[in-house]
Design a protein around this nucleic acid. Structure first.
Lengths: 91, 91
DNA sequence: TATGTATTTAGATAATTATCTAATTCTCTA
DNA sequence: TAGAGAATTAGATAATTATCTAAATACATA
């Protein structure tokens, strides 16, 4: 859970996730979208993978990245529960 | 949006938010729940306030903190949209 | 108005993190 | 099997951030 939030706290990583919503992409294709070196993007992808937000699949010399929606579901639930926990004591 | 995610990336701040779901609390009451100095908690509260995740209200010599659900709604929507954006192209 | 309590601000420090360059590994194909 | 392309690893550095202590501010009340 902490890893997920940490991973989401960086704008580059959130943009990568938004790219992967539409389609799976190779590391190189992802890197092209940023004004940043490939090792830096590789670092970000590694953090996203560590947080189980993405899955990587080696296909030949390419590495294809795709979203892992499982953790997204948990996170969505976390937010949902916040809004739906009533009986608030005010002051 | 970036401030929100940054604010949520720290476990202490998430715990503060979870405390505030149940009831409004003063800065001191919040600080008591942590093994951390008051200035440190004050720092975290300031970040949460900057992200519009909490509201502070000075009541006499106390400062009462409460959740601001508006930004939570936006964040929840952000996650929700992730899960509900279909037509995924695989590889 | 002096004192105690609540909270924040200021300034310093240590840990974390994002980024880079250079080098390495892996795979494909000429 | 040598070279080219894709991606990652290693190692260094600069920026950010979490935390602390000490000091300052704001308020209540004796």
């Amino acid at each position: 859970m902490n890893d997920s939030f940490k991973a989401l706290s960086d704008p580059t990583r959130r943009k990568i996730l938004e790219m992967l919503v539409d389609t799976d992409l190779t590391a190189g294709e992802i890197a092209e979208a940023f004004d940043m070196t490939k090792p830096s993007i590789s670092h970000h992808l590694n953090i996203l993978k560590g947080a189980d937000l993405v899955i990587s699949d080696k296909q030949g010399q390419y590495v294809v990245y795709s979203l892992n929606t499982t953790v997204f579901q948990e996170l969505t639930k976390w937010f949902f529960d916040f809004l739906n926990r009533g009986d608030k004591n005010e002051r």
